[in-house]
Design a binder for these strands. Structure first.
Lengths: 266, 266
DNA sequence: CGTCGGGTTGAGGGTGATCAAAGTTTGTGG
DNA sequence: CCACAAACTTTGATCACCCTCAACCCGACG
């Protein structure tokens, strides 16, 4: 389906196709997991499902019986305003569980959409609930994941509420690059981003036309290139500074020193 | 400190001063609690703390050992963008636990601020963690609270990203009115809102000047009055429609019918 | 009575929206 | 491999929402 060298599929470079392995890797970015915890996770039954680009995985008002672990591809949450304008709420990459909240909220309050061709692993809520009852540490780890989601939402409120178009764009791309790198995919200076300018606009609260102009502006200033679904960040230091990006909100250090420099993890 | 008739303190009208009682009321808005659960909650030790208006309860990068239940007053989360501009992230009223996420995220990624004089009850994380291990249903209920927070953040992203100033204002005020009513405080058509126009601006991603103009516009159209820290909604049906408000995102029905009308609960 | 925080008003400007059309890339089928 | 269509990107002209700056007003409070 895709070409042999497929950076755009957003797959694990080692082609890990075990979703649980990816989930473990994700959880271990932010907290410790015992061997028993990992074994318990591996005992979870799942089944794989593919979604072509631009298809809806689940819809507002749906009631789900499963949550999905992203195996490959780029997935987003989205919500419609009353007049039909769309707002993206978050991006999700391999290892994420973008609908984990349905474990305790019985109705979807937004859509889940595959932006590129994507593969997910579905895990039954019943199994997850049993797991969280039997392994409180895992319950905490999963709870924590949903709390990090919430933290990212908060940062997005700041992004659309208090930053101009250029900063919004830089901040968003930095976030995606940072998270991809943390999962071992791409480099901070260059990473896959299989998304249209229209989608970017919906993520940033802008129009596609203006997104186009902002991208050109950033390209002319030598800060950024966004071509063929790949983002390249050139002047890295300047970019980091201008984007107003502080990785604190991603909570990826389970016990960071109190006064670690903002970009210490980079 | 306040006058005898004190609608502005945002206290329980029956003057309940047991924080656990308020917490139970809050949790029961969205899910069932057994008597055993309630008893377990009542066994939690806490101590009361007061914060004058405009003081900070906890700060970005703080590490907390307690979470707080709001007893009275209006509290908000806030975050600074790089250039010093402030963005509010949510409002919190009696019964809320605005820093519950610190139970599993060890660093605050935003500030917690008392907008009016406020009273909170501090509960130690150690006690909460023990409780969640011993009572999985309570763990689920508290997890659920943080998930509802996240849903509200999502709605706020839509609000600042895809609605114009008027709609933003209406939506925000409707949300606060709705939540106060659910906790038995005020009416949908009239409720306390002890906040400056500047704070409103920070919540909406606008400037204080523009907030002032929007409020005047809404007043002239007979939709809304905001005087002396009290919001009055006049033309209620029209307001509900124009504000693009759908209470689904507050997840207050634990088992709502699939096709309940959006405003069914009002 | 003076100060201070907050609310109100006015004039002017800029960021980003809107509308419309022309390019360009991507995908598909012949 | 080419022809064609569809989707996406780019460009230009114009517009509006909201910002900025600056001043003034008002009520609360010492």
């Amino acid at each position: 389906m895709t070409s042999p060298s497929r950076p755009l599929a957003l797959e694990d470079p080692a082609l890990t196709n075990d979703p649980i392995e990816l989930l473990v890797r994700r959880l271990r970015l932010t907290c410790e997991l015992s061997d028993a915890d990992v074994r318990a996770l591996h005992s979870l039954p799942f089944h794989i499902k593919d979604f072509p680009a631009r298809t809806t995985i689940s819809r507002e008002r749906d009631r789900l019986s499963h949550s999905c672990v992203v195996v490959s591809g780029l997935i987003c949450r989205a919500k419609m305003a009353g007049d039909g304008r769309r707002q993206l709420l978050s991006f999700h990459i391999l290892g994420d569980i973008p609908d984990l909240q349905t474990l305790h909220l019985n109705v979807m309050d937004h859509d889940l959409i595959a932006l590129s061709d994507a593969r997910v692993a579905l895990i039954a809520h019943d199994d997850l609930r049993r797991l969280t009852r039997e392994q409180p540490d895992l319950a905490a780890a999963l709870w924590r994941e949903t709390l990090i989601d919430a933290s990212v939402f908060r940062e997005w409120i700041v992004n659309v509420g208090r930053r101009d178009a250029r900063q919004r764009m830089m901040h968003l791309l930095f976030e995606v690059g940072f998270r991809l790198k943390a999962m071992g995919l791409g480099e901070l200076g260059s990473f896959p981003m299989p998304i249209t300018q229209s989608d970017l606009a919906d993520a940033l609260g802008l129009t596609p036309v203006h997104v186009n102009r902002v991208l050109q502006n950033l390209r002319h200033e030598g800060l950024l290139d966004f071509k063929r679904a790949t983002v390249t960040i050139n002047n890295f230091a300047r970019f980091a500074e201008l984007s107003d990006f502080d990785p604190l909100y991603l909570h990826q250090s389970s016990a960071a020193p109190d006064d670690a420099p903002p970009m210490g993890a980079v």
